Simulated scan of single mutants.
Amino acid sequence: MSRARTTREGLARLSVNQETVRQLSLAELARGAAELGIGGVGLWREPVRAHGPAAAARLMRRHGLAVTSLCRGGFFTAREPAARRAALDDNRAALDEAAELGTGVLVLVPGGLPEGERDLAAARERVADALAELVPAARERGVRLALEPLHPMYAADRCVVSTLGQALDLAGRFPAEEVGVVVDAYHLWWDERVPRQLARAGAQHRIALLQLADWVTPLPAGVLLGRGQLGDGAIDLRAFRAWTEAAGYRGPVEVEIFNPALWERDGTQVLRETAARYLRHVL
């Protein structure tokens, strides 16, 4: 196979999440990705709402781009009935937005521990209860709910689901076509159980999306915005691609990086660099 063909086919599978180049408008992102031959984009609700979901969908179709995911729903762990109802209503709105965009994946960050609570198991059960409420709406809209386990450093404030195994246990209560999991190398790279859990996920047809970013240290204050450009850190990104493919996953590979240093640069250059790093460090 020629290098040019390998590059073309590889970039067709690549998706760049909007947050990687948040300095670009939706129109700039669509135009830049299409010019490079990138096949898809992952979108976030706030800028999509500002643009209008229908208009955003038309824009991506015009440029031949798949919307590989919509971020994010979730945050299901509140105990108070009013807060739980508000979270469910917001997630139903997210499902509507995902359906209008034409994506089949709504990424869910389950939520952290409410103030004063220390019972992780009870919080995870509230996540399961919320999924049960949302599955009928997801089925009607043709959108898959995709649980994303986050690194344990986020367990208190963002995500009580820290391992792929925990995410699969929750997803396994529901049909695979309705609830899957997001495999994000940034959150899972440290766990030696991941290859086995990926095999389990593949056997159950649970892998909804593969996301990549690199782990660089020292982590910044607050840790949320410390993701590294592909190839700059400690993660064997090529291994994650190989493990998910061995598990049967053939979907998009979405690069999602939260990093102010990247946001301060020219967004088109960052987009070009991301494509080059993907070809060098992932394929």
Rank of each mutant, 00 (worst) to 15 (best):
M1I: 08
S2F: 00
A4H: 03
R13K: 10
Q18D: 08
L26A: 10
G32A: 11
A33G: 00
A33C: 14
G42I: 01
L43V: 01
W44C: 00
W44G: 01
A50C: 07
H51V: 01
P53V: 05
P53K: 00
A54Q: 13
A56G: 07
R58L: 04
L59V: 01
L59R: 00
H63S: 06
H63F: 14
T68V: 09
L70T: 03
G73H: 09
F75A: 04
D89V: 10
N91V: 02
A93Y: 09
E97R: 07
A98E: 13
A99W: 08
E100F: 03
G102A: 05
G104I: 04
V107C: 06
G111Y: 11
L120K: 08
L120H: 14
R124W: 08
E125W: 09
D129N: 08
L131C: 07
L131P: 12
A132N: 02
P136N: 05
E140T: 12
R141T: 11
R144A: 05
E148Q: 00
P149Q: 06
H151C: 01
P152E: 06
Y154W: 15
Y154R: 01
C159T: 04
V160P: 09
T163A: 11
G172Q: 06
R173V: 03
F174V: 07
Y186Q: 01
L188E: 01
W189H: 15
D191R: 10
R193H: 13
L198I: 03
R200S: 08
R200I: 02
A201Q: 06
I207T: 02
I207G: 00
L212G: 09
L212W: 04
T217R: 15
L219V: 14
G222N: 05
L224E: 11
Q229P: 10
D232L: 06
A234Y: 06
D236E: 07
A239R: 15
R241F: 02
A242H: 14
W243H: 05
T244P: 08
T244F: 02
Y249D: 06
Y249Q: 05
G251V: 05
G251Y: 09
P260N: 11
L262G: 14
V270F: 04
L271Q: 07
E273I: 00
T274R: 00
A275G: 14
R280W: 04
H281N: 12
V282Q: 00
L283W: 14
